[in-house]
Design a protein around this nucleic acid. Sequence first.
DNA 1: CTGAAAGCGCTTACAG
DNA 2: CTGAAAGCGCTTACAG
Lengths: 342, 342
Amino acid sequence: MAQHRTTLKDIAEELGITVTSVSKALKDYPDISVETKKAVKKLAKKLNYQPDSRAIAMKRNKSNIIGVIIPEIVHFFFSNVIQGIMSYCDQKGYQVLIALSNNQKSLEKKQVNLMFNTRVDGLIASLANESATAKHFKILKEYNIPLVLFDKIDERFECNKVKIDDRFGAFLATEHLIAKGCKRLAHIRGPQHPLNAKERYNGFCDALKKHNLELDPALIKICEKVTLSEGYDFAKELLALDNPPDGIFTVTDQVGVGVIKAAQEMNLKIPEQLKVVGFSDSQIAQVVKPSLSTIHQPGYEIGETAARLLIEEIETREADSESPVGFKQITLDTYLIVREST
Amino acid sequence: MAQHRTTLKDIAEELGITVTSVSKALKDYPDISVETKKAVKKLAKKLNYQPDSRAIAMKRNKSNIIGVIIPEIVHFFFSNVIQGIMSYCDQKGYQVLIALSNNQKSLEKKQVNLMFNTRVDGLIASLANESATAKHFKILKEYNIPLVLFDKIDERFECNKVKIDDRFGAFLATEHLIAKGCKRLAHIRGPQHPLNAKERYNGFCDALKKHNLELDPALIKICEKVTLSEGYDFAKELLALDNPPDGIFTVTDQVGVGVIKAAQEMNLKIPEQLKVVGFSDSQIAQVVKPSLSTIHQPGYEIGETAARLLIEEIETREADSESPVGFKQITLDTYLIVREST
DNA sequence: CTGAAAGCGCTTACAG
DNA sequence: CTGAAAGCGCTTACAG
């Protein structure tokens, strides 16, 4: 038979006192006698009393649970972010409820509502590729629930944000290809909506412009799923052109690895005949042969920072629900990592 | 200013009826008049009423949240498992609270207690490398909270379990090396405690024995962290022996990739001079050059199955808390994937 | 020093 | 058809 979960009532009854006194005794209120405290604590220990977080959550109107909504989890960057979030939250006494959007706006919206109903204390999210804006998060604003966006953010949405300078990172990557002698550059970019895909594209264009290189629309490809096999397919197309590129900058390392695979199948020498730079500094970038040059994206730190901002906001509002909250956008450092592919 | 979260009370007051009626109306109880239902639903919609999951959880004594405790999350296999768990839970109306053990027994125990206090409806876990048993999960049994163990399980612990046949997988891997002509086999194994590390070691031994090959203790290395760099270091040691191995079976693909890296640095040709097989079928195994032969471990399906068993158990106990529960151990299929490294 | 009371937001058996 | 009451497990301002 299952044991009964000890409640304050059980302790109170056994000791012949009230629930009030038990509650206070356990929390060392000064107005409880030493003997009562002793007796209560002893019995609580004996019965293995564990307060019901849900009841406390209702009373305090605080769950000590934060929500996280991300597009996918089998993903080097996102799993690193989660790790950063979890380790920070653990240390601050918050638990983490995670949900996936699968990059779908409708599912993302559903998850936001579920999180709202569960009364999480705050939410951290990176937008689905399908989401052009974060408007479907506005229920959180209406009810003063803190939100931190990271990586795939909506610039117009008023909340804390954490990201890297994607435009600058892409600029570094592209300029590196140019410095290595590339004259005809291609970019396999991310989908239409995510801001970071646009910014990486912009950074690519910035570098071409600075160095007076032509931006050939035939050399721009747009991923839908941002997978290795998309990179592979687009690379095959690009490299079969009459006037193929001699350098390719890809929106992620996954896509870059696909490019390497395609080039190898076509017997192109990397880096001699084709140079490739990815983005994110995933593990596969170091493992692939030739190893892939890339832009570092500090997932763990992004997660940690997002969690820190979120918990700061939660606790500020707790202390003074009226004080206006100023939002920050924190931009973490990024840099180029040169490997065999360039 | 933040909006007020609509409660049943708000609706009741505005309509001049009781909370009871509002509650029933929203749930279409047959004993409420059609007009009342209409009015209530209309106002609920207008005020954007969202029931407080916590309050319902307390009443029903059911949170619709399941907990997951895993050793790490930046990990191909575990993130796939999580994905499987989440997609199944999503579809069944459960949310997922995740915590990490960082492979530490003490932290694992703390997480179990936290999950218990949060009153999750059930728990899915894979044991920390430090945990020789699942004894510290027994509080769950005492209070009849369903638990499903996967991958790193404790065979003695009475609960549902999901895994693959690690021993057989390791046997397949090793026999494949033998079939390819290896005479002197090494194994870089996982840590002491995890059952799957032991079983993979046993499977390795089974194959040697079947084919009358010597088991040289000098060719067995034990990982602590099971990382790429451990694989690299051990491979350097093994390959520097006077009588080095001609085939290495590694406990994971990460470790196998480290072996490949070391062998390449020592100018050994793979697979001509050294053959390598990993375990898990991670993405890096296909990306590394030469690509790594491996044993498939269906993470997504393991997660899905674990979630299914858990929710079945939760709902069985819900329906009849007295009925004795029979525990299953489900073993999913595994197979060898041959690539360039053998 | 201790306890009665109200309340967090719900649900449901029971009475009318 | 509707409502008063009790309860889930806690907390806390107030009275004594």
